[in-house]
Design a protein around this nucleic acid. Structure first.
Lengths: 219, 219
DNA sequence: TCGTACTAACTGACCGGTCAGTCATTTTTT
DNA sequence: AAAAAATGACTGACCGGTCAGTTAGTACGA
């Protein structure tokens, strides 16, 4: 139906109309992210999305079948490019497992936590149970890939002796958890107790890397 | 207005009516938790809450001014008792800082993550930005208390030499993060990739305790 | 370069269903 | 019998989704 998930250059083979259409689709997903982030799925008004995108309500339905589909497509459109970048960054990275883990974390903090995208994570948590579709997509295409990357790094680190052996049930979740909580804190509690993301990041990697490091003591 | 936040024993100074009223209030907050958990705030119907509590819609408005107030009161009513238990558990616990941290974690996993209450955490994350009231209450009365408890334990552990010195910005968030993520995973992704909470707990404390432990190697 | 015919894109008034909140009436308690 | 509690039909605002009508882009002949 539509394979426009990664719109980058203005393809010269496209007519003016096609380019406009694509631009509008992008404007709509941008607007959808903004509005859904602001008030959540249920309270978001299609009319507001339309206004924010500079079109009328009816137009939204020329691009998306329903509010629900708009939501899902928005998540996909916003997350897919980031995923590819992340995979590329991992592939490109070399050096010790510690360095690679650090690079991945840094990427995540800067490209997800510190921008609009963190709102998507919040929306997945908030709306996930009501959108099995979406939760499944998110798990299959985003989480499991992130999980695979982290686990590969850990495996290498254990082999090279940088990290100790851990049984690993929920290891990825535990390692990434700090980042997720930072995002949530920023979105929900920052106004009451501000969080310095840079300092937090230092604490996070310090704790994790030390936790993974081979330790001579008991257990 | 109402100071009934911790309904426990049937106070003999109360008339039969007052006791019934209190019971109904409890039934309503129970029902509210169930319904809000199921579908989120916006999609929840007052009529469903009423039915689940065994009363009619109008009755809900005899106890709560509005849907919003019902939501806030429900969170307060469900979280306050737990907090007091947690504080008590901390006070009662002695032994090494490691043991105390472990006890607190265990408490949290069993009394929050593994029951209805985890839904409240999800609701706070989901609806927090739309309910500054509630987010502030939650931060002031729940998070900051938990934070104080953990920080006290860490401080003791550093003094006793069990833990290394850490600068600590966001330390509490990082330590608790694993637990929060476990809760989210259970609620959103468990059906796609089940999480064994006991094994996860082991990984969590293993990673954290090792991360906090004094390490001889480079920072 | 203009005019004309065609069509894709867009609009916004409207419809139908939903639901928070109200209140006149009924039921229960004292 | 009086008061308190509970009811549920009702109202009015709201909003997702539709579609008849309008606008703007395109193709082409002169």
């Amino acid at each position: 139906m539509n394979n426009i998930l990664d719109p980058l250059e203005p393809d010269p083979t496209q007519s003016k109309r096609e380019r406009q259409k694509e631009a509008k689709r992008l404007a709509l997903t941008d607007a959808a992210l903004a509005v859904f982030s602001r008030v959540g799925f249920a309270a978001a008004k299609i009319e507001d999305v339309a206004e924010e995108a500079g079109v009328s309500k009816g137009t939204v339905y020329l691009y998306f079948e329903s509010k629900e589909q708009l939501f899902e497509e928005m998540v996909k459109a916003k997350m897919s490019p980031m995923l590819n970048h992340m995979a590329g960054a991992i592939e490109a990275s070399s050096g010790s497992a510690t360095d690679r883990l650090l690079a991945q974390m840094r990427f995540f903090y800067s490209r997800v936590l510190n921008c609009d995208r963190r709102q998507i994570m919040r929306l997945i948590m908030a709306e996930g149970p009501n959108f099995p579709h979406l939760a499944e997509f998110y798990h299959a295409n985003i989480l499991s890939r992130g999980q695979a990357m982290i686990e590969a790094i850990i495996r290498d680190g254990v082999e090279s002796g940088e990290f100790r052996q851990m049984q690993g049930h929920g290891l990825m979740q535990n390692i990434a958890a700090g980042a997720l909580v930072a995002a949530i804190w920023k979105m929900v509690f920052d106004r009451f107790q501000p969080l310095d993301l840079d300092a937090y990041f230092e604490t996070h990697i310090d704790l994790i890397l030390n936790g993974l490091k081979a330790a001579p003591t008991e257990n």
